[in-house]
Design a protein around this nucleic acid. Structure first.
Length: 236
RNA sequence: AUCCUGGGUU
């Protein structure tokens, strides 16, 4: 079952819905992972969302991954309230569910909804993986960043540290680009430096390219070149 | 083996 499911996900990855279907149907046995993989495989093909939803409801049983997949499919169709309904009716909410729901709201500009989910997560899930993970906070930082509220994003960034959660590499990618979109050049440089010095995060290609593009847009070609020089590896 | 956070382009 594991190898068949692995094969199935290979089809899914390549966007080959037909191959995935054939594979799914010829499997000797299917478990919940196979079903989940198939549901995801259908997404992004023609009327895939509808088919994925149908398949989802035909599943013999669901796990947390299944529900999250259904949530994602619904949200991709732009159906925010539908996604919210699935979220509310999920038997179990893992870290992924919380983060997905936050980002669904954020992507549709519903900052308040995102904030409410975030608060609920912190209350219901404290001590568990979700609320303590940088990723969960990242989705909230990103929510504000996306809305163009760099200042609020920075506040969340600071709040996470007060809560004892260490920002990770992704946090800084979000933060740097949020500042750049707001034209907060000096803040970018500040956080880039702090990231390395105070947080012990090694800058990756993502961070370098953010910095270079920010500096470039600000006309600071010399500083952009300096950053590029400092890269340990050759860039793209 | 399957869902999920985050940037640049859309």
């Amino acid at each position: 079952v594991v190898s068949w499911s692995a094969m199935l996900s290979t089809y899914a990855y390549g966007g080959e819905a037909d191959g995935a279907k054939a594979c799914f149907e010829s499997m000797p046995q299917r478990n919940v992972v196979s079903w989940n993989t198939m549901v995801v495989a259908l997404v992004g093909t023609g009327d895939g969302a509808g088919q994925a939803k149908q398949l989802f409801w035909r599943m013999p049983s669901w796990d947390a991954v299944s529900w999250n997949a259904a949530l994602a499919v619904t949200a991709d169709g732009g159906d925010v309230s539908g996604a919210a309904a699935i979220f509310e009716n999920m038997p179990e909410r893992n870290a992924t569910a919380w983060m997905s729901m936050i980002s669904v709201y954020a992507q549709h500009g519903h900052l308040q909804g995102a904030g409410e989910i975030f608060e609920r997560m912190k209350q219901q899930d404290r001590g568990c993986a979700a609320a303590d993970s940088a990723a969960a906070w990242n989705s909230m930082v990103a929510a504000y960043a996306k809305a163009g509220h760099a200042k609020a994003a920075i506040e969340v960034f600071e709040a996470m540290q007060v809560d004892g959660v260490a920002p990770d590499a992704s946090t800084f990618v979000i933060l740097l680009t949020a500042c750049s979109h707001q034209g907060l050049l000096e803040q970018c440089c500040y956080y880039f430096t702090a990231m390395i010095g105070d947080h012990g995060v090694t800058p990756g290609m993502d961070h370098y390219s953010s910095m270079i593009s920010i500096l470039g847009r600000a006309g600071q070609v010399d500083r952009a070149a300096e950053v590029a020089e400092a890269m340990p590896i050759r860039g793209d």
